[in-house]
Amino acid sequence: MSLENGLELRLLSALEAMEARREGLELAEDGLERALCSNACLLARALEEAGGHTPVFSDGRAVLAGLTAEEIGALAGRWSRFSRENDPGLDLPGEELERVKGELREDPGERLRWRVLRQFGVLPTEGRARAMRDRDYLWCLANGLLDREEELERLCPSCRARALEGCCPACGQSLPEEETGNPTFDLERFEALKEGKGLD
């Protein structure tokens, strides 16, 4: 979420939110300070410089020293609304889940990012994932394709032909050719990315 002063708020993982609450409890000396300290620790993790993903404050104590109580409350309120709007949670209705799935199905870029993150066991909220650009995802994809091609080159012609056949992941039977492709793969977009077009 972009702010008007060159900063932005980002969503937090469950672990980050839990760590913020724990840090807030350690900072607060009594119950009256708990909400303010918890919000300060939340902002220490959620408030970043726009584009650079660099935290503005090192910890909750730095937030308390650098912002007024009113500023902390206002920013925490904006983050709370932003979180509710952008993080549907696990109890969303079935039709909303289908809408989200449909949007992802029609977005090859998001599906590519998911496959790369899944391959390396990285969550999208991790710093290393948030620092990646389209060029980085393309680099991972291209290397994965090269790995696949090199593996195929080491096979004999007969085994290579079988490896290239689309097979059911459950029973191993060959699939019809029209069922083995990815209908959402944008070849034109991929070729443009290979040539360095449209990369940030």
Rank of each mutant, 00 (worst) to 15 (best):
L145W: 06
E178G: 00
L152P: 01
L42I: 12
M18W: 09
L43N: 01
L117H: 07
R78P: 01
G172R: 08
A62R: 05
E177Q: 11
D136M: 01
G109Q: 13
L36F: 08
A161W: 11
G60E: 03
L75G: 04
L123N: 06
F57C: 01
L97P: 00
R61E: 10
G121V: 02
S58T: 14
A192M: 04
S80N: 12
P169F: 05
L145T: 07
S80Q: 15
R189A: 13
V122R: 10
R135C: 00
L97Q: 08
P55K: 01
R45Q: 08
G24Q: 07
L75A: 09
E178N: 08
C140Q: 15
G198N: 05
L97V: 13
E188H: 14
P93K: 10
L92I: 06
S2I: 07
L141V: 13
E188L: 15
A17G: 09
V56S: 01
R133W: 01
L123E: 08
R118V: 12
L42Q: 04
D147T: 12
D30F: 05
G198F: 09
P157I: 14
L117S: 05
L90Q: 10
I72L: 03
R105C: 06
G166P: 06
F185T: 05
L97A: 12
E151Y: 01
E106C: 09
G166H: 12
L123V: 04
A50R: 15
L141H: 02
G127M: 03
A69E: 13
R99F: 03
E4M: 03
G172I: 08
A131N: 10
L9K: 05
E33Q: 15
D134L: 13
C167A: 14
T68P: 00
R34F: 04
G31C: 08
F57T: 04
G60R: 00
L117N: 06
C159S: 15
A192R: 15
R111L: 14
L15W: 07
L145H: 05
G31A: 10
L27A: 07
A74F: 11
K101C: 02
R148N: 05
D200T: 03
R99V: 02
A44K: 11
K194P: 00
D147S: 08
R162P: 00
A142F: 08
L104R: 15
E151M: 07
R111S: 02
P88E: 06
R115E: 02
L15H: 14
L199K: 03
E85H: 07
T54C: 01
S80D: 11
D136Y: 00
K101P: 00
S2T: 09
Q119P: 00
S2H: 04
A14L: 09
L175T: 06
L64P: 08
L75D: 05
E98H: 05
L25I: 14
G60Q: 04
